[in-house]
Design a binder for these strands. Structure first.
Lengths: 130, 130
DNA sequence: TAAGTGTATTATATCACTTAATACACATAG
DNA sequence: CTATGTGTATTAAGTGATATAATACACTTA
């Protein structure tokens, strides 16, 4: 596993997905899990780019999407900071969860599984989400 | 909704995903749900391409993946037919379901949801998968 | 003033996807 | 045998998203 740590956050990047989406998802995950404190500064665009060995523009793209979701606030000349509003984090977290659920149910629905079948499958694997 | 019907199967294509994947998924869905009978012939590559207004090569790509999964058998000069082996269909159906479950649990796990939380969310929306 | 922030711009390269145009091998109806 | 309809292969071209590179500018702080 090609694992890198930048600013206290772990990153695993591959080529199966756009890099900016992976960076976005993994920073967001750190925020959602509370692995990074509210109000805390995250690495600068250039730092992150160097640490991950990718282009600053690619990091920028991820950072801008974080700000669009109001998970971060950027202060010109200072850096990018996690929001101090815990309600924002909660909201985004549940929004993303709901999207995942909808997509999941749609996919299983298209395969002809009923709700109770889905529940049964999940019960047999449910131990995996901590 | 840009809906088209070809060979008794409904198709909705958009630009959010590769066309060949959408065709693949929607034919597969028809098979999994039993909307199309085992052994039945599906539209020829050219027919399907014309009906969906896409390139024959794109349809080919979808059809070849169906055959690789052994959901179809192709007979040169005759056409493409749904497998007569119901066990094959069952197998693929569960494989796809399992993949979807794993992906889903991984995603919610990365958002810091526990198994019981996932179960709770699903219970509140479970009515949607038939 | 210098160094470190976010941000914008322009250019280039690469890759997946899609289309287009042909051509070939095979099966079947006439 | 011929015509038509199958799957299949090949080559070429175009498009769009992604990523990199190089540079510049506005702002903050030590």
């Amino acid at each position: 596993m090609n694992e890198t740590t930048v600013g206290g956050m772990k990153f695993v990047l591959d080529l199966s997905q756009p890099l900016y989406e992976q960076v976005l998802a993994q920073v967001r995950s750190s925020i959602a899990k509370g692995e990074i404190a509210l109000g805390e500064k995250i690495p600068s665009v250039r730092e992150m780019a160097q640490g991950l060995k990718i282009n600053p523009n690619t990091v920028m793209r991820a950072y801008q999407e974080l700000e669009r979701d109001q998970l971060t606030e950027t202060r010109r000349g200072q850096g990018t900071f996690i929001t101090t509003d815990s309600e924002k984090v909660r909201t985004i977290r549940y929004r993303l969860a709901e999207e995942a659920v909808d997509e999941f149910l749609a996919k299983l629905g298209s395969l002809g599984f009923t709700a109770s079948e889905v529940a049964a499958i999940l019960r047999s694997k449910g131990g995996e989400a901590r």
